[in-house]
Write a protein that binds this DNA or RNA. Sequence first.
DNA 1: CGCCGTATTGAGCGCTCTCAACGAGGGTGG
DNA 2: CCACCCTCGTTGAGAGCGCTCAATACGGCG
Lengths: 237, 237
Amino acid sequence: MVIPEKIKLALRRFEFHSQVDFDKLPMRDKKELLAATSKVLLKPKEILFSQGSNAVGVFVLKKGKLKVYQLNYDGSIQILFIYREGEIFGYRPLLSGDRQPVSVAALENCELDFISRERFLKVLRKSAVLSNQILENMSHEFTVLTNRMNVFAQRSIRERLALALLILNETFKTELCGSKPSEILINRGDLAAFIGTVPETLTRTISYFKERKFIRVNGKSIWVKDFENLFILSGIE
Amino acid sequence: MVIPEKIKLALRRFEFHSQVDFDKLPMRDKKELLAATSKVLLKPKEILFSQGSNAVGVFVLKKGKLKVYQLNYDGSIQILFIYREGEIFGYRPLLSGDRQPVSVAALENCELDFISRERFLKVLRKSAVLSNQILENMSHEFTVLTNRMNVFAQRSIRERLALALLILNETFKTELCGSKPSEILINRGDLAAFIGTVPETLTRTISYFKERKFIRVNGKSIWVKDFENLFILSGIE
DNA sequence: CGCCGTATTGAGCGCTCTCAACGAGGGTGG
DNA sequence: CCACCCTCGTTGAGAGCGCTCAATACGGCG
């Protein structure tokens, strides 16, 4: 079960990897940045911060998965990204001066490092290596976001789910997986919010994929079986 | 005809302003950056660069309007942003090493300055002021993009058009307008591609707004008449 | 065992797409 | 100057996707 190179390559346009490598920083900067981090622990569904709040600092996700989402006036939610271990986030509103445009909550038990606004900005201002890494990350993420926006604007639910499953197969990858399909463990409501639909429609589309043996389902968990066909269905060329 | 403060404030979450202020740069950096720019002129519909090409440099739009879009495998296009005078763009793929994720073409006669990849990166690497401005810009644009993505994923065509018209009212603002509504001059195909629909549906929705006197239409041009109601309709709270 | 939240299945409807025809406007050539 | 064409915009009819509402099944937990 090896994912064809062609698919991996195309998927990169849709995958975040906001993984700043602190080891590349000069030792002095690294120490200053990481010296005074504080640990944050979250239980499933616990909210880290909410849309509209002021940005207080930067977080590094050490363990677990987070959802980043927006709440709409009608109560519906849209999940914009799902972060996995290693991801650094929360720096964008710090830099632009905007309020938090999103809310962040835990999908499972999470462990995070918190770096305060002041400390982060101080190191950023003087460290060219850090600011270059952030620039590089954000540039890529911007590309990813434009690609995803196109998908949301133009594609059917079936196409979006096909793509979402390929993305989540990466997000849920662990060392144990190797090249095997990941166990995508997420409840229907969250998955629906991620592809921008309602749980009923999602369930029907999942059944459609299951019938055609594109995926395997067991309880909440989903495994991709047929990467080729999901890729074709996703229509990302 | 004054736009209520509340609406202006909410719209900021959806407006780009990638306007790097070169005057804030140290004179030496500014000179180095701008010394060797070359002028580019575009006629309407002319393509500046295409999706998948390598990033060759950075552009500053001095005059005119550009569309930034993606072409889908089925031939449909999605306009992601519309740039106006003052906007700087093209630096993101330079920084992330991605290929151009988008194509750029002129909506009207355009005049641009071109800064080569090497020169831009050279100045960026040593100028903290420039890299901070770019960071700040990109952070805000990221926020805008997440907000727009949510709209595309969740909202009806009517809601999207209401929002699009409020955004374009800003994009098409000139000194002449003052606080008066702008003349939004864009053909139906492009406007449809901007809100993620087809021209037929767009026309019907425009008629709907026209009947209710939310907008005024003359040929291709559209003027917003009722900001309050369009704002409510857009559902961005 | 009963309860509550979550997932599935069904029925029906409305929005938006597709396909097709027609109209308006601008440019070109006779 | 007029006839023609080509593109763009509008209008109409019909179909299908995806939403809502409602009922039922499932599963973890007290």
